[in-house]
Nucleic acid binder design. Structure first.
Lengths: 339, 339
DNA sequence: TAATTTTGTGTTACCGGTAACCGAAAGCGC
DNA sequence: GCGCTTTCGGTTACCGGTAACACAAAATTA
């Protein structure tokens, strides 16, 4: 592999001069610069960033720890993050936790040994605070994406789960629904808690009853078709009087399982029951907009997250934590109908 | 940041001994090992891989250059690749070219300066051979994903675009279609060429006419709704006699634009016209399987690609290039009907 | 028990850059 | 033409590991 020494020899200068040419630092005679640049081109030299980072203590690399980039919501975050990172001169290392605390832990180690300059993470649960503190100990800035966790003091970029839920439920109420069930994600994730809060408060504000059995929990991602089916069966058969006329699915994955289960059980959406959810269901939306959703600007989560992270990394003066809560867009489509 | 020297001092040994403990190399007294391990734990030491890679000339990092991870097909590849990489002890740096040669070029530089041990790439076009040769010059193994390019001698993992197309077209012919149009991706991408070949040969084998105006080209990714609409209008109005009764969209993105355009122009699928395409249209398929498709095992593209790449990186004896061509699965659904 | 091997650990140098320091040559003011 | 300031570029040391070598102490063999 070509090094700065090879260039130096070829151009008849010292390695330091080559370094200066590369970094545009110090004063270099034009003729010298040209000699060096020619040698660099001739030998196809590319600086070794490992060697660089050894002295600079910067790797120009960010860690991006998400649930699963194969999930469109997260792959959009990843795309936004990667774009912003490259614009700012950074590289991105990716990791998928699958909502698994152990995997998350392993990836934090990976990020530490890679000496990333900063980490963007959608934490699996409140327990993740321990990992984040480890990063902090090593002086690695962290920005949370999509979710907050208890005791975290730092920047985050999330969606407004509370407001989004309120609006979805209000929409259902406007359509005349009084019996609305919630199929939520795991309550150790902040978005699930916020969505439940929005759901409950909106019902209360409208003097609608909240039945215990209207609320169930399911995985945000690996929804087993059986799970959704059981929940739906339970909901629809429990008590004919209180049978829900609408379901609030906490995210797009859950919504898909719900639709599937309803279909298998012979219920039609929206004739028999309305369904709303968080996050866009793509790419259906482009040719057959079906779901009434609270769409989140996932791309922006990633973009803004990286911008803030890089500001921390480069120690721009940032007084205090920034808590960005991006409002979702409510799109009313065909999965909801008036009673 | 804690270094091996801090550990050495704390444990009262030489840095070399610490290194040996970490790497399980050489002979270490149990008591010494325990002392060192305690110090490592107490100080929260994590090895600096930049320093390591400086001596070892290995970064344990792979580059993954794709069109766009926000595209489900590629995000699945990315997921498969990342999983396999971690299993084999590697990290993954991601890059999105957006089918742009210049961006691709920049990312190759990024990978070179990061000194990745190997690169997985879905090349933007045949021109990419120049970049790949640059990588080869630096002794960095390359595995192609999804697409091949001219003059490339090395491993690749692609789908069988030819066979998949043949089967899709044969399915249409079995359904009685005689006038089948192709809306293809750009012909500088191998998959587009192979799909067109499959399309043409199947028509010929069945003594069906090939009309020049049946074939059009469009971007694989950033399909402008206007573009698809223009093509459809042209197809449907050109000559009532030869109006196609079926359209072969070269990938899922194109298929979505086609469906959208058809809808806007008042045509119903599959009553008025049948549509088939490559790649699954997710997540619709889970709750409303609509599209007749040639589904590709994208995850496997990534997994196998990484396995082969790592074998090259670690110089396992691999005699010659491996050309893996994975067959797609044909799923016949509701977007096609008999004439 | 002496000779030989194995075990356990330290020393030195180097990987490829760059910060810090230094000094010769050139430019400048008077 | 003398002293002072720039300009330009080289030397040295260090970043955090590890390979290669060295060597004393312990274990094994003859």
């Amino acid at each position: 592999m070509v090094t700065i020494y090879d260039i130096a020899k070829k151009a008849n200068v010292s390695p330091m001069t080559v370094s200066r040419v590369i970094n545009n630092s110090g004063n270099i005679k034009i003729t010298t610069r040209e000699k060096v640049e020619k040698a660099i081109k001739d030998l196809g030299y590319v600086p070794n960033s490992a060697a660089r980072s050894l002295t600079s203590n910067k790797t120009k690399t960010l860690g991006l720890i998400l649930t699963d980039i194969a999930n469109p919501f997260f792959s959009k975050i990843a795309r936004g993050a990667e774009d912003a990172a490259v614009e700012l001169g950074y590289r991105v290392l990716i990791a998928n936790t699958d909502e698994d605390f152990e995997k998350e832990n392993t990836y934090i180690d990976m990020m530490l040994s890679a000496r990333v300059d900063g980490v963007l993470i959608a934490p699996t649960s409140d327990k993740t605070i321990a990992q984040i503190n480890r990063l902090k100990q090593h002086n690695i800035p962290v920005v949370l994406l999509d979710r907050t966790i208890k005791d975290f003091a730092g920047d985050y970029v999330i969606g407004d789960s509370y407001e989004g839920s309120r609006k979805l439920i209000e929409h259902l109420i406007n359509y005349g629904h009084k019996n609305i069930a919630l199929i939520n994600g795991p309550s150790n994730v902040s978005t699930a808690r916020d969505r439940q809060r929005g759901y409950l408060e909106t019902l209360k504000l409208n003097d609608l009853p909240v039945h215990e059995h209207y609320i169930s929990e399911i995985d945000f991602k690996n929804v087993q078709s059986g799970d959704a089916k059981n929940i739906i069966q339970h909901l629809m058969n429990h008590n004919k009087e209180k049978r829900p006329t609408a379901i609030f699915a906490a995210n797009n994955f859950i919504a898909i399982s719900v639709i599937q289960a309803l279909k298998e059980l012979g219920f039609h959406v929206p004739q028999d029951i309305s369904v709303v959810c968080f996050d866009e269901v793509e790419p259906v939306v482009y040719f057959d907009p079906f779901f009434t959703v609270a769409a989140q600007p996932a791309n922006q989560f990633g973009r803004i997250g990286v911008q803030y992270l890089v500001e921390r990394v480069e120690e721009k003066k940032v007084e205090k934590e920034r808590r960005i809560i991006l409002p979702p867009d409510i799109h009313i489509r065909k999965s909801t109908s008036k009673i």
